[in-house]
Design a protein around this nucleic acid. Structure first.
Lengths: 342, 342
DNA sequence: CAAGCTTGCTCAATCGATGAAGCAGAATTG
DNA sequence: CAATTCTGCTTCATCGATTGAGCAAGCTTG
C-alpha cells in the first residue's frame, strides 16, 4: 500500500493530493469528505482521488477540518478511574454509544483529583467538544459554569450537580432493597432480627449518604432501631475496612451491608483472619458487583448499577432539547445467587 | 466567574479578548500561551489579559493551535476493552504517565474488532497524534504501515508485531513459573505427580500460545509427559470453560492451570456444580489477577502482569531514538496467598 | 443561433492561534 | 544632539480543510 514507509515523513495534505492528481484542493476536499456529489465532481475524478488517497495513506487533519466546521461531533467525558469494573464499563459503554450516534468520544481520567477534574474539563473544551459528560465529578457545578461560558452542554453522571442535568443510580432504592434482602435472610437462615452493620464508603460522599439513607429506611420500615455504631463509613479500601473492624467494640452482628467490592475484599480478609468459624454463620450483601464475590457462600445479593441504562439516559439528554437541571435516578439491578442456600 | 452563563453562547477567541482588552490578538496569544516574556509584553498588559480570560472562561482552541504547531504532543492508544482489570489498568496508567511526560493522551476502544482497530488508528492519526500505541491489536503490522506513511511512531503493546517495537508480558516465563508452583503444590499437598490440565484461551492467540509453551516447558523440565488432552484451549468465557469441562472424558486431574480470571469464573462454577466435594482436594493457579479469586482456598498462585513496567517501557521507547522492531518481554509478578495452606 | 441551463470544476475567504518581522517611542550612549 | 539600543507592542502570512461564489465549456430549447 504505502510506497516506502519510513519515519520522519510529512503527512500528506489535500494540497499534495491535488498536485499529484492534477486537480484543485477543493475538489480533493469535496471527494474525501463525501460532499462530492453535491458539489458536482465527476465519478471519474472522485475515483482517481480516492485511489490516490488510499495509496498515500491519507488521513484528514481534524485540526484543520474542525476549525472550519461549526460542530465538532466530539463528546467528552471525564472519568475518575478506569481500573474498576464500574467506571471501566462506563467508559466502554460511553465509547460504543457515542460511536453509534456518529460522535467521536474522548475521555480523560481525573484520578479523583478535584483540581485535575477541572483542568481536564478545560482541556476537553479546548478540544472543542460539543458536549461534556462529568462522570463522578466532585464539583460538577464549577465545571457546569465553565461549560456554560463556552456554550457547551454538560450532563453530570454518577454524582449530581445543581446546574446541569444529572444521571445517577437510584442508590436509595437499591440500598433499601438490598437491606431488606439481607434482613430477610438473617431472619430466615440465622434467626437474627437485625440491625445490620453498614460498612464502607465515606459519609460525606453523596452516593454513600443515599445508600445509608436506604439502609436506615429499610430498618425503619421494619421498626428496627438502628444505633449510630451500626454505620461504619470507614472509607473504601480493604485496609481501612479491616482496621475499622479491628477497632470496633462489641460483638459483630451476623448481617452486613458492604458498600463496595473493594470494601468487601477487606471484610472477607478480616473474617478469614479474625473469625475462623464464620462460614455459614454470616449473611451479607454488597452494593457493587463482582463475579467472584458473587460466589462467596454467605453473600446473599449484590447490587449492580445499570451502566447501560445510565449511559442511554445520558445520550438521550445530549440529543434532547435544552436540558433543565433535573436529576434522573436509574434503578439498580439486584443480583442474587442462582440457588438458595441454607 | 461567568457573567450570565447560558447555552448557545460562542466560545470566546483571542480576537474577542483582544477587542475587550483594547490590544491585538497576538499579544493575547502570547500572554495566554506563556511566551509573553520572550515576546516582551508588559506585566501589566499580561495581568489584564489573564484576568479577562479568567472572567470569560476562555479556553484555547487546540484545533487552531495545533494546526499551527508542528508537534501536537498527543499520544494515542487503541485498547481492545476497558472493562477488565488488565486493560483498565493499562488505560489508567497510560494516561497518568502520558500526563507526567507532558503529553495529552487520547484512547479509543476497539471492541476486539480488527476493522474497528484500523479505523480507530486512522482516526487517531487524524487527530495528529505524534505517536500511537497499538494495544492488543490483532493486526499490528497493518497499523504500522499506516503510521509509517504518516511519519508517526508506533509501539505495539500486549501483542507483538514485526514492523514496530513491541512490549509484551513474558508470558512464557510467567506460565512456566506458575506451572512449577502448581506442580509443587500438587505433589506436596496432594501427592499428585502431574500432569496438570491447561484450560482457557484460544490456541491461535499469541499470548495463549506462549503460555502453553511455558506450561509444556515446565512439564518437560520435570520429565512429565503431557498428553494432548491436557490442553483445553476452549476460549475465555466462563460458559465455554464450563461446557469444555462437561465435555471432557476421563477423570479430572487435581491440578489446573487456568488461563484467565474470566475462565476461572467458569471453572469455579463448574467445580461447585459438578464436583461437590472438591474443596481442599484441588490445586490450581491462574494467569491473571483478581482480588477475590486470590482468596479462593485452593488457588495457589496468580500471575499479575506488570502493567506499570510495561507502560514505562512503552514511554521509554516513545521518548527514545529511532525504534527498531525489537520485542521486549516484561517479567510478570507471581502473587501467592499470604499464608501457606495444608 | 442567442438565451439559458447543466456540468464539472477552480478561486478565494475563512476558522483561531502562532510567531517572524516590523515599527513607533523611550532610554541610553558616545 | 545624533546614533544606537531597548521596550512594548502590531501586522501579516501561515497551518489544512471547507464552502459560497464564480466561470468556462457543453447542451437545450424556442
Amino acid at each position: 500500500m504505502t510506497d516506502t514507509p519510513g519515519p520522519g515523513r510529512k503527512r500528506p495534505t489535500i494540497y499534495d493530493l491535488a498536485e499529484l492528481a492534477g486537480t484543485s484542493p477543493s475538489a480533493v476536499s469535496a471527494v474525501l469528505n463525501g460532499s462530492w456529489k453535491k458539489r458536482r465532481i465527476s465519478e471519474k475524478l472522485a475515483g482517481r482521488i480516492t485511489a490516490l488517497a488510499g495509496e498515500l495513506g491519507y488521513a484528514v487533519n481534524y485540526q484543520a477540518s474542525l476549525l472550519r466546521r461549526e460542530r465538532s461531533n466530539i463528546v467528552g467525558m471525564i472519568v475518575p478511574k478506569y481500573d474498576n469494573r464500574y467506571f471501566g464499563a462506563m467508559a466502554e459503554r460511553f465509547e460504543a454509544v457515542a460511536r453509534a450516534h456518529g460522535m467521536f468520544p474522548v475521555m480523560t481520567c481525573t484520578q479523583r483529583d478535584p483540581e485535575l477534574e477541572f483542568e481536564a474539563a478545560r482541556a476537553l473544551l479546548s478540544y472543542q467538544v460539543d458536549c461534556l459528560v462529568a462522570n463522578g465529578a466532585t464539583d460538577p457545578d464549577r465545571i457546569a459554569d465553565l461549560c456554560a461560558a463556552a456554550g457547551v452542554r454538560v450532563v453530570n453522571l454518577d454524582l449530581p450537580g445543581s446546574k446541569a442535568a444529572s444521571v445517577t443510580s437510584d442508590n436509595f432504592a437499591g440500598a433499601k432493597t438490598l437491606t431488606h434482602l439481607i434482613l430477610d435472610r438473617c431472619r430466615d437462615d440465622l434467626g437474627h432480627a437485625g440491625p445490620l452493620l453498614f460498612i464502607g464508603g465515606r459519609a460525606g460522599d453523596h452516593n454513600t449518604a443515599e445508600r445509608i439513607g436506604g439502609f436506615r429506611a429499610a430498618h425503619a420500615e421494619r421498626g428496627i432501631a438502628l444505633p449510630e455504631e451500626a454505620i461504619l463509613a470507614c472509607g473504601y479500601s480493604p485496609d481501612k475496612a479491616e482496621r475499622a473492624l479491628d477497632a470496633r467494640a462489641g460483638a459483630l452482628p451476623p448481617g452486613l451491608f458492604v458498600n463496595s467490592t473493594i470494601t468487601l475484599e477487606g471484610v472477607v480478609r478480616w473474617l478469614n483472619r479474625a473469625v475462623p468459624d464464620h462460614a455459614g454463620r454470616m449473611r451479607y450483601g454488597c452494593f457493587d458487583y463482582d463475579a467472584f464475590a458473587a460466589q462467596l457462600p454467605d453473600n446473599v445479593g449484590m447490587i449492580e448499577q445499570d451502566v447501560d441504562g445510565m449511559i442511554a439516559k445520558v445520550f438521550a439528554l445530549i440529543e434532547g432539547g435544552p436540558a433543565s437541571p433535573a436529576h434522573f435516578r436509574i434503578p439498580c439491578i439486584l443480583r442474587t445467587p442462582p440457588l438458595p442456600r441454607g
